[in-house]
Design a protein around this nucleic acid. Structure first.
Lengths: 148, 148
DNA sequence: ACTGATCGTCAGTACTACTGACGATCAGGC
DNA sequence: GCCTGATCGTCAGTAGTACTGACGATCAGT
């Protein structure tokens, strides 16, 4: 138990509340990342999918969705856009024709490489105000919290 | 600079990416908080407004909105609900009749006190996996990142 | 009094992600 | 070899959130 204040409002500054801080940190990083990726024709959401595919391809749509923590119905529209842009391809999995094999195209790999650079710059800008040590600590703490 | 890998995909694990971690930490905390506040008839978004009002009331709608970092048009609907529930009141500011003075009702203060307890429990549950030290560090780091 | 800005409100829009349902397909029991 | 139940991708519909643009009422400065 921490110190008990007589005024309940003593802890009411929104900027002290974890929920506020987490939400606005997310918003800020997303805005920076989207701006950095915009010249490549993708956003941070698309980049998430590309990252999964570059890491473990080929994969089914469901595998990608689960890795990202989004619904499989959400993945459909996301891949529709990437397919229309020539960044990924879908074809039926020969070993299980319920599934689609999702793969980066040659152009998709180039886009991903460029996106990684852009994303790195955005993340660095976001983290500029804190030390590399604090960054590692932050990443570690968040990973623990998310994985419970 | 960290070690440079020949495979760009080496850093592609989504669980290492800050954007993913921040987003999912936010989602998890929000879910916990909403669940804890649900018996009181409010959610984490409402609680944010209550916190501002309890901290610095009376205030205009715009002041509350800006403190929370949301649009003033969004605040309208939010306060509509809280007013209908008897938690806050709106009346024209005598000194500037463009503004509404927003204030917690007696019932609103009781709701807020109960909400603070519930919120504290949810936040503690969220933070259970890390040390108090890491919690302080996390709060400090996020504050720096958000305030830039 | 006039001009420009501010506040609250509302309609309309955009985005995101979900639920529920469907057809096609697979796996296991018999 | 069929059934039965489950899985995958798809789509329509829905809900939540927050925005833009516009409006009337009001204020401040000239």
């Amino acid at each position: 138990m921490g110190p008990v204040s007589t005024e309940p409002s003593a802890t009411a500054d929104p900027h002290e509340v974890l929920g506020y801080l987490l939400k606005h940190a997310t918003l800020k990083l997303t805005a920076l990342t989207d701006a950095a990726l915009e010249p490549l024709g993708i956003d941070s959401k698309d980049f998430g999918a590309l990252r999964v595919l570059a890491h473990r391809e080929p994969a089914s749509q469901l595998q990608v969705a689960q890795t990202l923590g989004i619904d499989r119905t959400t993945m459909v529209a996301l891949l529709d856009v990437l397919e229309r842009k020539g960044i990924i391809t879908r074809r039926p999995d020969p070993t299980d024709r319920r599934r689609n094999v999702v793969q980066l195209t040659e152009q998709g790999m180039q886009t991903f490489d460029a996106a990684q650079v852009a994303h790195g710059r955005a993340e660095s800008a976001f983290l500029a105000a804190i030390s590399p040590n604090a960054t590692d600590q932050l990443r570690q703490t968040l990973r623990t919290l998310v994985e419970n």
